[in-house]
């Protein structure tokens, strides 16, 4: 009975993993097929695997440039929002200020703002200051979602740090800022790091702002670049699958390296305890 249960469990688990991973598997297998095989057959494996699609994906469109753009924009967005958010989250969780409930309410509400509702004024603003197709032009709108997200996550992490250390620092006569810098910040480092990963992924994945503001080919980010790979008449599935594999690899590495941290970040915002 026990072992039969176990078999069923592992079968179900394998089925679940297979369903979730199948699209990736198929996209990868397609990316190493010959052009002709993609359109004519549904065989799993190509008899003559080739890297032709990869060469084509990297040369027909500036895929490496897309990745650089995405990386720079996401990195700066992360840096700015995590710095501002650390101060705010510390203040909101540890310092005796008034109106905490209202402030957190505003932050939570602004994280739920639909981007489509704010995009036209931001587009006007960015155009007016000649920031279209530049890094700054995307970093500014990206603060709209990354800052509330970072404050929300960091507040949870700061809350979990024991208060005794602060109390003893205070007893020893350390100023509140010194306490923050020497005691809280090092203790919160793992939480800050987790927040940074999540904010980075959110910025890396953003689509709507990137589509409207950075429309020039060399200024595109990865999601926009991939979605515009197709030409007017044909859809080069070989190139697209190869490009998809290339841009997914960094994400897979991040996930494999930091899976525990990511999960702690994702669940801390929604589950008490």
């Amino acid at each position: 009975m026990e072992s039969k249960n176990k078999t069923v469990f592992y079968l179900l688990l394998a089925l679940f993993i297979f369903i979730v991973m199948f699209p990736f598997l198929w996209v990868f297998l397609t990316s190493i097929k010959q052009q002709g095989d993609i359109f004519s057959s549904f065989r799993w494996f190509s008899s003559h695997p080739t890297f032709e699609s990869y060469r084509s994906a990297l040369t027909t469109r500036p895929l490496v440039k897309y990745m650089t753009n995405s990386f720079v924009i996401a990195a700066f967005t992360t840096l700015i929002s995590v710095v501002f958010a650390s101060f705010s989250a510390y203040s909101l969780t540890r310092l005796p200020i008034r109106g905490k409930g209202i402030i957190l309410g505003i932050i939570l509400a602004s994280s739920m703002f639909p981007h489509i509702a704010i995009i036209s004024p931001i587009y006007n603003f960015v155009t007016e200051f000649n920031l279209r197709n530049s890094y700054t032009g995307l970093i500014i709108p990206y603060i709209t979602f990354s800052l509330p997200l970072a404050i929300w996550l960091l507040s949870t992490f700061f809350q979990q740090i024991p208060r005794d250390l602060e109390e003893s620092a205070k007893m020893d006569g350390a100023s509140p800022f010194l306490t923050f810098r020497k005691i809280i910040f090092p203790l919160a480092a793992p939480g800050v790091f987790t927040t940074a990963i999540l904010v980075f992924i959110a910025a890396w994945n953003e689509y709507l702002f990137a589509l409207t503001i950075n429309s020039k080919e060399t200024a595109r980010t990865v999601p926009v670049g991939i979605s515009l790979y197709q030409s007017e008449y044909t859809i080069p599935w070989g190139d697209i699958t190869a490009a998809t594999v290339i841009v997914t690899i960094p994400i897979v590495i991040i996930v494999l390296l930091f899976q525990r941290k990511i999960i702690s970040g994702l669940t801390s915002g929604s589950v008490k305890g």
């Binding site: 679940f16 993993i17 198929w26 993609i38 991939i226 998809t244 494999l256 899976q259 999960i263």
Partner: peptide
């Protein structure tokens, strides 16, 4: 399992949409 769960969440929606466009394609 953890990785399997996280990867679909972590990749850009636009990229996954492109993958599904391929999987749903009428011909291939």
């Amino acid at each position: 399992v953890r990785a399997a769960v996280l990867i679909p969440w972590a990749i850009p929606t636009a990229v996954s949409a492109m993958m599904w466009k391929f999987l749903y394609d009428g011909q291939s």
